[in-house]
Every structure is written in C-alpha cells, then in structure tokens.
Design a protein around this nucleic acid. Sequence first.
DNA 1: GCCAACGTTGGC
DNA 2: GCCAACGTTGGC
Length: 152
Amino acid sequence: MKKYWLLKSEPDTFGIDDLKKKKREPWTGVRNYQARNFMKEMKVGDLCFFYHSSCEIPGISGLCKVTRVNQVDETQFDPRSEYFDSKSKKENPTWVCVEVGFVKKFKNLISLTELRKEKKLSKMTLLQKGSRLSVQPVKEEEYVFITKTFKI
DNA sequence: GCCAACGTTGGC
DNA sequence: GCCAACGTTGGC
C-alpha cells in the first residue's frame, strides 16, 4: 500500500529546484525522533509533498518519491556538520533516513494560506496549531484532494 | 518521574 | 525580529 508524506525544507538551504538539479538526495538532518520514526515507515515508491518552510511564501512546491529506505544519515558522524551527534554510535546509528527522488515541481506553489482556506484539509497535520514536524504523514484523501484541486 | 529552563521551529 | 508552541535537558 502506497503511502503519502510531507517533507519540510528551507528553500534557501535545499529547495525543490535543488532536488530537480540533483535528481536524488538523502533526506539528512532530521533530529527529531517522531520525524525519524515516520521515515522508518516509508516504503520505496511512497510519494512526498515537498514543502518550503521559513521563507517568504511557505507552501507545497512540488512532489518527490522515496527511492531508498533505511539509509544511514552520515551527517551524524561528521564533527563539522551542524547535524553532528556525538552520542550516536557507528554500530548502531541513531539517525536513519530515506533517499528521495525528484518527481515534479508544481507550476504554482500551493501556499499555506491557500491550503488553510480548504475546509476539507482542516484536519491535515500541517495545518494544526503548533505543528512543527518536518516529516509527517498525509492521508490519501488529502493527497488526492490537493492534487485535484490545485493546478500542479 | 516531575518540571523549570532552555533551545528550536516556523509563521508572521 | 518577535513570539507561540513544542521538544529536550538536567537537577532534584
């Protein structure tokens, strides 16, 4: 059963255009257990909305798909990385991630403001008050509604 | 195990 | 840059 997800990224650091250029990218830098656990649930072929956060117009910028699962996030072992984790052991890495591949960039970014206008999306995790998870599940109905409602 | 203090996220 | 909401840390 294919599942749907949403991944947040700051476009100034790594946006949909960067993924388009690189084609594939390991989703490193997640340092929240709940977010990591969702990545552990992902299967190859699952689709993920690519969300731009902390920027001028936050919103969903495109689509990507899971291309590899259970990847070790190497940044946890790099002392120069901002994601370095001194407590993580090579033989049992704390942080694992998935690799994602570019699928498409939406013709128009679906802004957070537009998403909030949709009553059918009111239960969406992204739109809940105080929701900061950088990796979150998206219900199939939500995925279908969004891809049908907006010109992507 | 509680909880205050601190750090981070992310919209505005 | 502000600040609300949430997560983590560490003393007790």
